[in-house]
C-alpha cells in the first residue's frame, strides 16, 4: 500500500516536473521525435525496397517457345516432365492462338505488322510454356534441363528474363539507403541522448532544494529518482505520439503517389503500418524509452549522487 502510494506520487511529481519545465520537455520530445521519424523513414525505405525486389523477382520466368509443328499433347508431356523438377514452382501453358492474340494486342496498331501477318495467312506461332522457379538459384538447373536432347529438338527459342542486373542494382541502392538511414538515425539517437542528459541535469538543478529536503526528511533513493524516469518515459510516449501523428497523415496523403512511383499497388506503406503498427511502434517505443531511461540513469548517477 505504502509502495503503491509512493509510486502514484512519483508519477505525479514526474508529470509536474514535465509540465514545469515545459520548454525543456518540448525540446526533449522534439529530438526523440526526430530520432523516431528517421527510424520510420528507414523502415519505410526498407519496406519499399523489399516490395520492389519481390515484384521484380515475381516477374522472373523462362519462356519456352515451341516450334509451330509441335502439337499440344507433346507440349503438355514436356510440361509434366518439367513440373517434376523440384526447382519449378509453376508452368503456364500458352496455346498458339493465345500467343497470336497477345502479339496482335501488342503490335495490333502497327500497319506493317498487321500486313505481314495477313500475308503469312496461317498462325505462325507455336505453343509456349512460361516456367516460374521456386527461387532465383533454381533457374540454372531449369535452363540445363531444357538443353536436354529430348526437349531441345522441339524448342525453337528460350527466353530467360532474369533481370539479374536490375535486382543487383536495386539491392545495392536499397542497402546504401538503409546504411544512410541508419547513420541518420544513429546521429539523431546521439543528439537525443545528449539532450535527454541535459534535461535531467537541468531538472535536477531546478529541484535541488526539493531533493535536499526529501533526503533530510527520509525519502528513499528510488522515490527521489523515480520522477525523473517517469519524465523520461513520458517524453518517449509523447515523442511516439507526435511521430505517429505526423506519419499517418503523410502516408494517407502520399501513399498513392508512392505506389504510383513504385509502379505496383503492393508498395502500400499504409497497409504495412496497419498490419505491423503494434510490432513497429512497440519496438520503437521500447528502444526510445530504453535510450531515455538509460540516459536518465546516467545523468542521475552523475548529478543526483544518491
Amino acid at each position: 500500500m505504502k509502495t503503491f502510494v509512493s509510486i502514484l506520487r512519483s508519477l505525479r511529481f514526474g508529470l509536474q516536473n514535465f509540465g514545469r519545465n515545459i520548454w525543456l520537455s518540448a525540446a526533449t520530445v522534439l529530438v526523440l521525435t526526430l530520432a523516431l521519424v528517421s527510424v520510420n523513414a528507414l523502415v519505410s525505405l526498407n519496406v519499399l525496397g523489399q516490395t520492389a525486389l519481390a515484384a521484380l523477382r515475381s516477374r522472373i520466368d523462362v519462356s519456352v517457345h515451341f516450334k509451330p509443328e509441335v502439337d499440344e499433347s507433346r507440349v503438355q508431356t514436356v510440361r509434366i516432365a518439367l513440373l517434376a523438377l523440384p526447382e519449378v514452382s509453376s508452368i503456364q501453358y500458352v496455346s498458339p492462338a493465345e500467343s497470336l492474340e497477345s502479339f496482335s494486342q501488342t503490335y495490333g496498331g502497327d500497319q506493317a505488322v498487321a500486313a505481314s501477318l495477313s500475308e503469312v495467312g496461317a498462325n505462325p506461332f507455336g505453343a509456349a510454356l512460361i516456367i516460374r522457379g521456386r527461387d532465383l538459384t533454381g533457374y540454372p538447373k531449369i535452363m540445363a534441363a531444357l538443353e536436354d536432347q529430348q526437349f531441345a529438338s522441339l524448342i525453337e527459342d528460350k527466353d530467360y528474363d532474369n533481370r539479374q542486373a536490375m535486382i543487383a542494382r536495386l539491392e545495392s541502392i536499397s542497402s546504401r539507403a538503409a546504411f544512410g538511414g541508419l547513420a541518420v538515425s544513429g546521429l539523431f539517437a546521439l543528439i537525443a541522448l545528449l539532450i535527454v542528459f541535459n534535461t535531467v541535469r537541468v531538472s535536477i538543478y531546478t529541484h535541488r532544494e526539493e531533493i535536499g529536503i526529501m533526503r533530510l526528511v527520509g525519502a528513499s533513493d528510488w522515490f527521489i529518482r523515480l520522477p525523473f524516469y517517469v519524465e523520461a518515459v513520458l517524453s518517449s510516449v509523447a515523442a511516439l505520439a507526435v511521430c505517429a501523428g505526423l506519419l499517418l497523415p503523410f502516408l494517407i496523403f502520399a501513399g498513392p503517389y508512392i505506389s504510383h512511383f513504385m509502379g505496383t499497388p503492393d508498395a502500400d506503406l499504409l497497409q504495412f503500418y496497419r498490419t505491423h503498427a503494434f510490432q513497429v511502434f512497440g519496438l520503437e517505443f521500447m528502444a526510445i524509452a530504453a535510450l531515455a531511461v538509460l540516459t536518465t540513469k546516467a545523468a542521475a548517477a552523475k548529478y543526483l549522487r544518491v
Binding site: 505504502k2 509512493s6 529536503i213 526529501m214 527520509g218 528513499s220 522515490f223
Partner: peptide
C-alpha cells in the same frame, strides 16, 4: 538545519505535508 529551508512555492501546510508525502505516508 541552518540551510535547510522551506519550499517557497508551497504553503506552510504543504511544506509540512511534503515530509510525509515523500516518505510514502497515506
Amino acid at each position: 538545519f541552518q540551510d535547510f529551508k522551506l519550499l517557497p512555492k508551497k504553503t506552510v501546510y504543504e511544506n509540512v505535508a511534503f515530509a510525509l508525502e515523500v516518505c510514502g505516508a497515506e
